[in-house]
Amino acid sequence: MEDMSGYPHELTGENTPMVSFKNVRKSYGSLVVLDDLDLDVTTGEMVSIIGPSGSGKTTVLRMLMTLEKINGGCIYVDGKPLTHMPKNGGLVPANERHLRERRADIGMCFQHFNLFPHMTALENCMEGPVHVLGISKAEARDRSEELLELVGMINKKDEHPSRLSGGQQQRVAIARALAMRPKVMLFDEVTSALDPEVIGEVTNVIRGLVDEHNLTMLMVTHQMGFARDISDRVCFFYGGKIEEQGSPAELFGNPQRERTQQFLSAVREAV
């Protein structure tokens, strides 16, 4: 087992990041997907992750959502270890109970929405609050309707996902994730499966979240313009590492690394 003695049981101090990846490694067999990733995201920050496919960017979000196990290092959320738990004075890989406790801070939206097809939009949003958080149905309904209002889907609250367009489904999915009151929201290529004309309705919702809420957000996207508009920081991933990161103005306006320049010019040509 990996020696975890170098990793603290808790991150403390005034500038404790909301999310912290420390030397995180991920591989599938001999294929290394992420190589010693170090990434801190401060509370309320919006970080976009861009890069070519296969660069490990989606894996970053999936590890944070605990959909993928990590092979080394440690991830902290809100100062506490997510992938590990303290035991006998050391850190050991987290069990299901620890994961359930720590996962409560994180919400995620997927490329293909993944709404529950046997439930209406409202029921999708109420499911977690009622059956995971255990709050009353009436309260969960109020909370969910408020969020469906926020994403502009209140008039479709009683529709099943099969009756909604992709953009509408994705907005419900955002409401469903927010209903759990996460501290960190993850957006995994949330506009990639959408028709071009409805992308705006989803990006506008995310834009609203940046303005109104003190949410920490990580977003994997192929929409460079959107990333440039709303991010506090942009990370360019290449070959399982952060090749370059900086403010949108720096990274898009004056990229330093050759691979970043190549990637951005290739993307611009494609548009």
Partner: peptide, 26 residues
């Protein structure tokens, strides 16, 4: 679809609830 398991996990459902409330009905 696998995405249903993942979405149920993302709202922090326990494995048993994922099965009973999300997967089995479908």
């Amino acid at each position: 679809p696998k995405g249903q398991w993942e979405a149920a996990l993302a709202i922090n459902m326990s494995p048993a609830k994922r099965m009973w409330r999300i997967i089995l009905p479908q």
